[in-house]
Computed example of a mutant assay.
Amino acid sequence: MTTLAWGFDALLAAGMLWLGWQALFLSRRFAAVVHFMAFQLLMALAWVRLSAPDIALAEAAVGAGVTGALLLTALGRLPAGTSLGAHPHRWQRPCAGWRLAPPASALAGWPGWPTLCLAPAWRWRSPAHSMRQASATLSLRCC
């Protein structure tokens, strides 16, 4: 990749981070919805950069288009004077549940533990090898 492509990707990532932060923490709901829609458009552009135009089209249509229209419609149906959030700093409180992160990650990894233990015992063989083994077993039983 060229320096220009790296710069564009870095600018795209920084723009996505900034728009995502603004969409989450703005106190004005209309501005938050507009930032959310812009974030979804940048996300579609990121999918284009990753050579996935089908996902990019779906992201632009559903993420920015339909979801943005639904959010703007819901915002328009709110009573007058409620465009500002009741508690704009509600999401900025420190999370008290950080102590649950280690047990939650242990529980999330628990179903994969048998798979990791049994992985060396699994020997992936080609179908031709399986056919030879089956025919050898069959020939031994017939004789």
Rank of each mutant, 00 (worst) to 15 (best):
A10C: 14
L11R: 04
L11V: 06
L12K: 09
L12R: 09
A13E: 05
A14N: 06
G15D: 02
G15M: 10
L17P: 03
L17M: 08
L17F: 05
L17R: 12
L19F: 15
L19E: 08
G20D: 09
Q22D: 00
Q22I: 01
Q22T: 03
L24I: 06
L24V: 08
L24F: 12
L26M: 06
S27V: 04
S27Q: 08
R28L: 15
R29G: 03
R29N: 02
A32G: 07
V33C: 07
V34T: 02
H35A: 14
H35I: 04
F36N: 11
M37A: 13
M37N: 05
M37D: 01
A38V: 01
A38D: 01
L41V: 00
M43E: 14
A44S: 02
L45I: 12
V48Q: 14
R49P: 01
R49H: 08
L50C: 04
L50Y: 14
A52M: 07
A52N: 05
D54L: 13
A56F: 05
A56C: 14
L57K: 09
L57I: 05
E59S: 08
A61F: 11
A61G: 08
A61L: 09
A61S: 09
V62F: 03
A64N: 00
G65P: 02
G65C: 01
G65E: 02
G65I: 02
G68D: 04
G68S: 11
A69Y: 15
L71S: 04
L71M: 04
T73P: 03
T73F: 15
R77N: 05
R77T: 00
R77F: 08
L78W: 14
L78C: 05
P79K: 03
P79C: 09
G81D: 01
S83V: 09
L84H: 03
L84K: 00
L84V: 00
A86S: 06
P88H: 08
W91G: 08
W91K: 10
R93V: 00
R93G: 04
C95E: 12
W98H: 12
R99G: 11
P102Q: 10
P102N: 07
P103Y: 09
P103M: 13
A104S: 14
S105R: 12
S105M: 15
A106Y: 05
A106Q: 03
A106R: 13
L107S: 07
G109T: 01
W110F: 13
W110H: 13
P111Q: 02
W113H: 12
P114H: 13
P114D: 08
T115D: 07
T115G: 09
L116Q: 07
L116V: 09
C117H: 15
C117T: 11
C117N: 08
L118W: 00
L118G: 06
L118D: 05
A119M: 10
A121G: 13
W122E: 08
W122S: 06
W124S: 11
W124R: 06
R125Y: 09
R125H: 10
A128D: 03
A128P: 12
S130E: 12
S130Q: 03
Q133W: 15
Q133F: 15
Q133I: 11
A134K: 05
S135P: 07
A136N: 11
A136F: 14
T137E: 01
L138Q: 06
R141S: 03
